[in-house]
Design a protein around this nucleic acid. Structure first.
Length: 550
RNA sequence: GCGCCCGUAGCUCAGCUGGAUAGAGCGACAGCCUCCGGAGCUGUAGGCCAGGCGUUCGAAUCGCCUCGGGCGCACCA
């Protein structure tokens, strides 16, 4: 519809000699009385042309030639908007297109097979995933889905580190808990992980290995504890992600960057560029030369690198592996590391513009109107597993995606659990189930069956405002996907699906679908099926179920 | 103190690259089922878009400042 008008209006602008200065853009007016599409060219031209915007609009409208079967009304309104109204049948007829594409409706090719990586979760295996990781998993996975739907070639990746200080603490904590089974006074490390899960892992270790680990030399025992705990925790992490429908293609181990010499290479390159230097026994990254406030240590005096170095090396690997677009989904606590990593990427000769960082804010849980206090130190934080146990995977994903990533998310447990009209998840799913029920009823009456030939349906019979309105909204599904995708804003799809559900319920309330007039009935059933298609496809992208019954 | 995010209805939040009269859900109040799913629909009330200054035909949206809340500011990740 935009393409059609762009051509027509451009022709008019050319004939008036305005084409040079015109920036032609269309948008959908908020009010229905303002038509289906509107343009403000006349207003933007006013200054350079030196005429009143309304006069210019008059001239443009006078020079327009269009098909009256497509556009039924053109009018000038307000300060100089030109509003276009399309024929109702222009929309309803395209319902056929939705049915023809079915499960593929909404897919576009704008990504052109671009090799794309989305990195998300990336939690080290030192404990169970938190609700914050859950939000990240939902956001990252949905962004990956959106990129897939717009034709990108997507790799979902999880980056982790099973070496270093944190894993050492994990090993020591596990070892101490294990020892305490035999020797209750065994000292627990001061900075150890307090959570009960450590005790559970130790108990499993004891069940598997008895007291044999005690008899090993300390370092060897720690090594056993580390790999045992790591495996247990990683299994748990993968399981909980699977419960949310999240599955990564690649688990990238930071350790590989050391083994294959990448880390050394990066330091070497930075030195060559005069961006790394030694001071006080450490190696520094000269970020001040790249526009940040101060230099940062990349290799500690102990010889161990700080996280910045492997992060830069990892991003270099991303580019070397041929990714043309790299999406990093991080929690708000990682904000400060990003400029350094991007500076490093740039220094190494890659384009940081190809890296899109999506930052999400934190999650607060609300129970009975009270904030659930969580502290990682103490054992009283709610894990992602527990959250899914309590409210179910669909509600978890939906709630995590409901708000824009930049906003803090208040997760109301009571609401998420409630199986009623108050719960926004059910509102969308109910619309889908309701349509499924109608289609079942129609089939039982031998009026219409899913999959039957729909090529002869007369969509022009759909004339009611709620019928046309629904058709119009369904047709914007591909646009919504593109907007949500390229803005990295999954919540826009959530909002849209809520709107589709509302439009459907309104339509259903206004019109009886299964009726004696066969032609009209079939047209309405086709519209129902189109709505069901959009809801199902949208839910698939969000990673929630679209039930036939509920 | 410095950096990033946020401030919109009683509550939780939308508001697309600046556009016409500011939107939804929940909560409150009032209505709608002899008929395909009432987990639905319709209506009413509720706003100095935190505040100020600026940019322009036009600002919730862009810029600067102030206030208020969150998160960071390690040779932790």
């Amino acid at each position: 519809m935009k393409a059609y008008l762009t051509e027509k209006v451009n022709a008019a602008l050319r004939s008036l000699g305005y084409a040079e200065n015109a920036k032609l853009a269309f948008e959908q007016p908020k009010l229905e009385t303002h038509g289906d599409l509107t343009t403000n060219v006349a207003m933007t031209l006013a200054k350079s042309v030196g005429k009143n915007p309304r006069t210019i609009a008059q001239e443009i409208v006078g020079a327009l030639h269009f098909d009256s079967g497509v556009i039924t009304k053109v009018e000038i309104a307000g300060p100089g908007f030109i509003n276009f109204k399309f024929a109702d049948t222009f929309f309803t007829k395209q319902t056929a297109e939705i049915l023809a594409q079915g499960e593929a409706f909404g897919k576009t090719h704008s990504g052109a097979g671009k090799k794309t990586q989305v990195e998300y979760v990336s939690a080290n295996p030192t404990g169970p995933l938190s609700v914050g990781h859950g939000r990240q998993a939902a956001i990252g996975d949905t962004i990956a889905n959106l990129l897939h739907w717009t034709g990108h070639n997507v790799t979902r990746e999880y980056y982790y580190n099973n070496a270093g200080r944190q894993m050492r603490i994990l090993a020591e904590s596990t070892y101490a808990r294990y020892q305490q089974f035999f020797e209750p006074t065994f000292l627990f490390p001061a900075d150890g992980y307090q959570g009960d899960y450590i005790r559970e892992i130790a108990e499993k270790l004891k069940a598997r290995r008895g007291d044999s680990v005690r008899l090993l030399p300390r370092e060897e025992a720690l090594s056993v504890c580390k790999s045992f705990a790591e495996e247990e925790l990683f299994t748990a992490i993968k399981n909980v992600l699977a419960r949310m429908g999240v599955k990564h293609d690649v688990f990238f181990n930071e350790d590989s960057l050391y083994h294959d010499g990448t880390i050394e290479e990066v330091i070497g390159e930075l030195r060559k560029l005069n961006l790394a230097y030694d001071q006080d026994g450490a190696v520094w990254f000269k970020t001040s030369a790249l526009g940040t406030d101060k230099d940062r240590v990349i290799v500690k005096t102990s010889g161990e690198p700080t996280y910045r170095l492997p992060d830069i090396a990892y991003h270099r690997e991303k580019f070397r592996r041929g990714f043309e677009l790299v999406v990093d989904v991080f929690g708000a606590d990682h904000i400060d590391t990003i400029p350094d990593v991007l500076a490093g990427v740039k220094a190494l000769g890659f384009d940081p513009g190809k890296v899109k960082v999506v930052i999400h804010q934190f999650v607060t849980l609300l129970r009975d109107g009270e904030q659930v206090k969580m502290s990682k130190r103490l054992a009283n934080f709610v894990t992602l597993d527990e959250l899914i146990d309590e409210v179910g995977p669909d509600a978890v994903r939906f709630f995590f995606l409901m708000r824009s990533t930049g906003s803090h998310l208040e997760f109301d447990l009571n609401l998420a659990k409630e199986q009623s009209e108050k719960n926004p998840v059910y509102y969308v799913q109910y619309a889908h189930a309701r349509i499924a029920s109608i289609l079942r009823f129609a089939e039982s009456q031998n009026v219409f069956a899913e999959g039957e030939d729909v090529s002869h349906i007369n969509y022009a019979l759909l004339v009611g405002p709620s019928e046309v309105g629904l058709a119009k909204l369904l047709l914007t599904f591909p646009d919504t996907i593109e907007a949500a995708c390229y803005g990295y804003e999954p919540h826009r799809l959530v909002t849209y699906l809520g709107d589709v559900a509302t439009a459907f319920h309104k339509f259903y309330h206004d019109h009886r679908v299964v009726i004696p007039e066969a032609d009209l009935s079939k047209a309405r059933l086709a519209l129902c099926l189109a709505a069901k298609t959009v809801l199902a496809n949208g839910c698939r992208i969000l990673g929630i179920s679209a039930p036939e019954r509920m």
